Simulated scan of single mutants.
Amino acid sequence: MTLKAMPDFDYIIVGAGASGLMLADALGSDPHFGDKQILLLDKDRKQSNDRTWCFWEQGAGTFDNIVHRTWDTIYFAGKEYRARIPIEPYRYKMIRGIDFYEHYFGKLKGFSNLTFINAKVQSIEDQGHEVVVSTNKRTYTGSQVFSSIFDGTALTSQQRYPVLQQHFIGWFVKTRTNTFDPGTATFMDFSIPQKGNTRFMYVLPFSEKQALVEYTLFSEELLPEEEYENAIRNYLKQDLNCEEYEIEVKEKGRIPMTSYNFKQHNSANLLHIGIAGGWAKASTGYTFRSSALKVKKLVEHLKAERPLKSFDRRSRFWFYDLLLLDILKRDNSQGRRIFESIFKKRSPQLLFKFLDEETNFWEELLTMSGSPTRLFLDALRRRLF
């Protein structure tokens, strides 16, 4: 009888994005996993400022030492309702990608049981007794693998769940004249032409002359790149009365918005994390804080030695998100009406608590009753019958 070789690593983490790095740090810094060998794989060395992450949070938080800017007031604009709204005790926080990467890779160097390898993953196969991860350099085996590789074809090839995208292009601009209010983040400005979609401007001001100005959509299809950029150009000129500016950096991205069952792609020893695991909030596309909370739960799950396939059960919030996506899939122009109604009738503090999935049932009814209820009742009826 031949004995099977032990896997190379106890845990392999595929992808050094937000969820992968947070998980690597959580495992590496916890004495419970001190005797575990951990491998982190990514095709990129993460040495550029390739993205920004934003989230709302009450008081001081885990990431405050790398937060780039914060705001305690937000601006919302719809068709008829416009307001600058204090959000205390919450603050809206922004982290630059490069600051996040430098911080976490710096911490990972101090973990003797963690190895980072710059390699492109080509395939992952759970063989029962181990998971085989093939890269462009060599093949590694792990007892359990956490993968952030996202395959969008699984979403587009099914009809059961609506699939929208949060897609955007943003310009980091520097203006000649004072243009921005550095104390107020423009959370959603729906005053721009909707063109049958849910479209809004998003502005993060760093000073009176510097800001990130972003054109964002919640819709099914992407636009030609020039349409996003023309919208930003028009907004600067017509809404902010600014014609002289320098574009310092551009960023773009897209995040799936769906209640699709990502868990079906997990196996006994393979768990998908981040966007690939459905960790993005389906109704908003916000992923960063959700990933941080999921990582904490996952670490406790591993400590308890519970099966990977039982991690992260659905809650009632999953169904709330599904109803909103059903509405926007059926009529994408309804986004402005829904968000304007909620911001007009309810406080952002209640909305943030609801989106963080920390409300009780009565608070959820109160939040949802601030929206056009007929839309949600019709969506509920279609789902049930």
Rank of each mutant, 00 (worst) to 15 (best):
Gly59Ala: 14
Ile149Lys: 04
Pro162Gly: 09
Phe63Cys: 08
Ile192Tyr: 05
Arg306Ala: 06
Gly78Tyr: 02
Tyr140Asp: 01
Arg45Phe: 12
Gly106Leu: 11
Asp378Asn: 11
Glu251Met: 13
Pro31Lys: 13
Asp378Gly: 06
Gln210Lys: 07
Gly17Met: 09
Ile247Ser: 03
Ser148Phe: 02
Asp8Lys: 11
Ala211Glu: 02
Tyr260Arg: 02
Asp126Trp: 08
Glu125Thr: 12
Phe319Leu: 14
Thr373Asp: 01
Glu251Phe: 09
Asp331Asn: 14
Glu226Pro: 00
Cys242Lys: 09
Leu355His: 05
Leu328Pro: 01
Leu350Lys: 03
Ser48His: 13
Asn332Thr: 02
Leu324Thr: 02
Ser290Lys: 03
Asp99Trp: 10
Gly183Phe: 07
Ala304Thr: 12
Thr62Ala: 13
Glu220Asn: 12
Arg289Ala: 13
Thr179Val: 04
Asn136Thr: 08
Val131Tyr: 05
Ile98Val: 15
Ile327Gly: 04
Thr135Pro: 00
Glu80Met: 07
Val14Met: 10
Ala5Trp: 03
Leu380Arg: 05
Leu308Gly: 00
Glu300Gln: 14
Leu298Ile: 07
Arg199Met: 08
Asp151Tyr: 13
Leu302Asp: 13
Asn234Gln: 15
Gln334Ala: 07
Ile38Gln: 04
Ile232Gly: 06
Lys195Pro: 00
Lys297Trp: 09
Phe9Tyr: 15
Gln349Leu: 05
Leu3Val: 15
Gly274Thr: 05
Gln334Arg: 14
Ile327Gln: 01
Phe288Glu: 08
Glu57Leu: 12
Trp56Ala: 11
Ser291Asn: 15
Glu225Trp: 09
Thr359Met: 09
Glu220Ala: 14
Asp189Pro: 03
Glu125Met: 06
Glu227Tyr: 09
Lys195Cys: 08
Glu125Leu: 09
Pro307Glu: 03
Pro224Asn: 15
Tyr140Asn: 08
Arg233His: 15
Ala77Ser: 14
Glu357Cys: 10
Leu108Trp: 04
Met188Glu: 02
Val67Ser: 04
Lys281Ala: 05
Thr198Val: 01
Met94Pro: 08
Cys54Asp: 12
Arg383Phe: 10
